[in-house]
Every structure is written in structure tokens, then in C-alpha cells.
Design a protein around this nucleic acid. Structure first.
Length: 276
DNA sequence: CACACAACCTGTCAGC
DNA sequence: TGCTGACAGGTTGTGT
């Protein structure tokens, strides 16, 4: 579910609702998600004030007092739900609940449990193992065509797979890689190292624009993605190729339409005629 | 080091 | 109405 735009949308929702609040109760309902929760998870968070909400790649960073940061990754199926009633009943896959001093309840729900939470020190955040090797933020000015092609240099893997690698560029997932390559007119099958020069100059703005569009649309979803405040995201209706196998490509008169192939065990959608 | 692939876990949907 | 198999937005560990 959550790629960069969805995580960014969640962060903005959290910022509006709980920034500045204090955590007065933390309920941890199971020992692990993708990884075990850190030791004394609830105790370490209880009583802390939320100073800021930040994002790095697909990680949500809740900056707390005492040099602490709560790191949250939503995995494939994770969501954060905000309830006005702190006595809200928890459901089967609600694994953590945070109550604020103004009696909101933030519930972490994740059926597949591919998400994770950790607690890190703010001062050492950049060297945290989860964040250390992540590439540039695609919306930051230092993500330039030169920077991208440098990182792709020597890579024989398809550009589709390379863009999913968070060390190359941060925050892209299966949907936005497909959409960005489509906008840039680049085939997902093309060898990564050949995306340099003119092609990199097309791809960098394509990535930026598709992410910006999705953020502006409030995040997207396949089915029932819900933002922190319960609103639905609408970018899903604007996919040009993702999950649109067989549909006519909007930018050319090809007969076969959008094709679906498998790369690295994941579906890729593209127009073989328009994307080279 | 780069790469391909399996694994983690549950829900949903298409086809029989 | 079941049942089965394929598939789903991500990351990481293992083997070559």
C-alpha cells in the first residue's frame, strides 16, 4: 500500500492531529511485527511529548523528547488510524495503540505484519541501520539526473528493479516506478546503467512529477487505502499503466495496449511501443 | 559487490 | 457455498 506519497500523506495527517501532544498510554498487543519490538517499548514512549513528525523514504519518524525517535514502517498493509474516542475497541490486526493527552487514539493496524517499529536516538538517526544506506529523497534538490546516473552506473539489472532499490533512490515502490517509467517513456526492461544523459534527464522529473501529483491527490490506494483521518486517496484513478493490463496506452495508438510482465517476482505494467 | 529468488503473513478474488 | 491457487503497495536474508 504505502509508497512515498502515501507515507507523506500519513505524516501530514499526523502532524496536524498529534504534533505537540504527549503520549499518555501505549498498548503493545504482540511481541513482534516483521521484527521484534524493541525492549521496554511502551515504557520508553509513555510520557513523551511529540516534537515533530518527519519522513525518510517510507519510514515515519516520530521525534520525541529525550533524544528519542519512534521509527514506523507500514510494510505492505500497515495503516495508522486516528480515533477521537480513546476507548475505541481494537480489532484483530490492531497491534499497537497510542493514546495522547488530548484523548485521541492512534491505532496501528497491519494484517500482514510486514511493517515494523523501532526506537532510535535522534542524534544518531542518520547512522541507524534501517536508514543508513538509503539513497536521496527524490523530491530534494540533490536528486539530480547526474546523481541518479552515478548511482545506476555499472548496474546490469533492469531499471525497474534498480528503482525499487532504496539505496538508489528513496521511497519508490512498485506503483510509482511503473508510472514514472511510463511518463519518461523508458522501458522497465532497459538495463539500468543505460539510463544516463538524456534518459536520466527525462526520468528525474518524471519521478518528481508523479510523486507530487500523488501527494497532491492525497495518496493513492488499490482498494481501500485510508489516510490517518479516514479520507480516501484518489490518485489510484489516475494510474496510466499500473494495474491496467490490456488498456489502451493513452499516449500512442498501439494495438496491444498496456502489457504486464514479471520482473524480480513483481508485476510490471508498461507500453512496449511507447516505452523504449 | 551485484544479482536472483525465497521468505515473511494474511486477505481477497477468480475460477471451478 | 466451498475450496484452491494466484496475487497484493515492502524488505531482507541466502546462495551464486
Amino acid at each position: 500500500m504505502p509508497e512515498l506519497p502515501e507515507v507523506e500523506t500519513v505524516c501530514r495527517g499526523l502532524r496536524r492531529k498529534i504534533e505537540g501532544r504527549r503520549l499518555i498510554r501505549v498498548v503493545q498487543r504482540r511481541p513482534d511485527l516483521r521484527k521484534p519490538f524493541p525492549k521496554n517499548f511502551s515504557q520508553r514512549l509513555r510520557g513523551q511529548r511529540i516534537l515533530a513528525i518527519e519522513r525518510r523514504a517510507k519510514y515515519i519518524l516520530i521525534v520525541l523528547e529525550a533524544d528519542l525517535v519512534l521509527i514506523i514502517h507500514l510494510g505492505m498493509s500497515g495503516r495508522l488510524l486516528i480515533h477521537d474516542d480513546p476507548a475505541q475497541t481494537l480489532e484483530t490486526h490492531d497491534h499497537v495503540a497510542f493514546q495522547t493527552d488530548d484523548n485521541q487514539l492512534i491505532v496501528y493496524r497491519d494484517p500482514r505484519r510486514f511493517g515494523l517499529m523501532d526506537i532510535a536516538s535522534h542524534s544518531g538517526l542518520a547512522s541507524h541501520p534501517l536508514l543508513r544506506d538509503i539513497g536521496p529523497e527524490p523530491l530534494d534538490p540533490d536528486f539530480t539526473p547526474t546523481e541518479l546516473s552515478n548511482r545506476l552506473r555499472g548496474r546490469k539489472t533492469p531499471i525497474k528493479s534498480a528503482l525499487l532499490d532504496q539505496r538508489i533512490v528513496a521511497g519508490l515502490g512498485n506503483i510509482y516506478v511503473c508510472e514514472a517509467l511510463y511518463r519518461a517513456g523508458i522501458s522497465p526492461r532497459r538495463q539500468a546503467a543505460t539510463v544516463a544523459g538524456r534518459r536520466a534527464e527525462l526520468l528525474v522529473p518524471a519521478i518528481r512529477e508523479v510523486l507530487q501529483d500523488a501527494i497532491e491527490a492525497g495518496g493513492s490506494s488499490l482498494r481501500d487505502y485510508v489516510q490517518t483521518d479516514g479520507e480516501l486517496g484518489y490518485f489510484q484513478h489516475r494510474f496510466a499503466v499500473y494495474d491496467r493490463e490490456g488498456v489502451k496506452c493513452p499516449r500512442c495508438a498501439c494495438a496491444s495496449g498496456v502489457r504486464r510482465i514479471n520482473q524480480g517476482g513483481r508485476s510490471t505494467f508498461y507500453c512496449p511501443k511507447f516505452q523504449r
